[in-house]
Design a protein around this nucleic acid. Structure first.
Length: 335
DNA sequence: GGCCAGGTTCGCT
DNA sequence: AGCGAACATGGC
């Protein structure tokens, strides 16, 4: 199993695939600049080599995709140029071929947010005393997107209320226990668990992974709903922000915090702001005071954070992402 | 050992 | 409507 304790490599880049053996498919793609692959991919993995189903190692982002039931491992590397970015994608998997290239390109592009235009946000942020240092430090960070609404919902529920350390343990345990394995180059990668795979589990099974009975019930309800077809989460992509939030909150276990996070990290919406997030409340407080890191527990209320965030509208998803990017570096002792 | 963590639901006034 | 409790676990 891959080591998930070491931190991801920073600037080391390689131009050859990270995995041995001939790929079934290989092609290149050009993100909208500025694009920093190291910042964007390591944001997905929380600055670790592995987080759940995502791997970022030595400049390569690796992920198992589900191509209509067939598993494929994709490996995405970067030319290292923020202003003229070029990504090379290799894909492995039996049954994978050139015909899959368009779908793989679309999915990889979505996961890494390569088409996002950061310019409008940067214009606003550079004129903002609180955000200006962050957009300079993290220039080229795009907002990663979840592979599916289902995956994002399950991951969010596991992170509700608990510390980031606990969330990481729960998320990794779930992927290891229910994600389909993909062997390659002597390592085991895992897809995110399919709804049907989780639907067959019991509350006791998930409690054994250290989920509370409540979290287990929420996850199983959603997995069974999606697996049976009664719950069509992916159809929400076409709806306006307010309707997405409303529909998500009807699901047991989903409240405003979860819905707002999904707008940012799953639906690629520009102006999401999870004002109920305790950590975000601390970071906004710190930024307002001109500090790089939150003080000892000082935090404004959710309503105060929401009011303060209005100056960043309509780009609050980006503001939120950059605040958390900075916060994670601070907690890692890098700033 | 106690308290809090990147919330939400449920049962009370 | 608004408020407090319960939820499971890891880290300080």
């Amino acid at each position: 199993m891959l080591d998930d304790k070491s931190t991801a490599g920073g600037s080391a880049q390689r131009t050859s695939p990270a995995s041995p053996g001939p790929p079934a498919v290989s092609f290149q793609m050009t993100p909208r600049p500025p694009y920093d692959h190291a910042l964007t991919a390591s944001h997905i993995t929380f600055n670790r080599e592995r987080y759940g189903a995502d791997v970022y190692r030595e400049g390569h982002f690796l992920r198992v995709l589900d191509l209509n039931g067939r598993l494929a491992l994709v490996d995405v590397a970067w030319n290292g140029d923020v202003d003229a970015p070029l990504l090379t994608v290799w894909a492995y998997g039996s049954g994978t071929g050139e015909a899959d290239a368009p779908e793989i390109e679309r999915t990889v592009g979505w996961l890494l947010g390569v088409e996002q235009d950061l310019a409008p946000f940067y214009r606003l942020a550079l004129a903002d005393d609180g955000l200006a240092p962050l957009v300079r430090r993290f220039r080229g960070l795009h907002v990663p997107q979840a592979a599916s609404v289902f995956e994002a919902l399950v991951m969010a529920i596991l992170a509700q209320q608990v510390s980031s350390a606990v969330a990481r343990i729960l998320r990794s345990a779930l992927v290891d226990a229910y994600g389909a394995p993909f062997e390659h180059g002597g390592a085991t990668y895992r897809a995110f668990p399919a709804p049907a795979a989780l639907a067959g589990a019991s509350v006791e099974d998930l409690r054994a992974l250290k989920l509370s009975a409540r979290k287990a019930e929420y996850v199983l309800d959603i997995a069974r709903g999606v697996a049976s077809g009664a719950l069509d989460l992916e159809a929400l992509h076409d709806r306006p922000d307010a309707e997405i939030e409303e529909e998500l909150c009807r699901i047991r276990g989903v409240g405003p915090w979860t819905a707002h996070w999904l707008l940012i990290r799953t639906f690629d919406r520009a102006d999401g702001f999870p004002s109920g997030d305790l950590a975000l409340q601390r970071h906004v407080t710190a930024v307002m005071q001109g500090k790089a890191a939150p003080g000892d527990g000082v935090r404004m209320t959710g309503d105060e954070a929401l009011e303060a965030s209005r100056r960043w509208s309509p780009h609050r998803s980006y503001a939120t992402t950059y605040l958390f990017a900075a916060a994670r570096r601070v907690s890692a002792g890098e700033l």
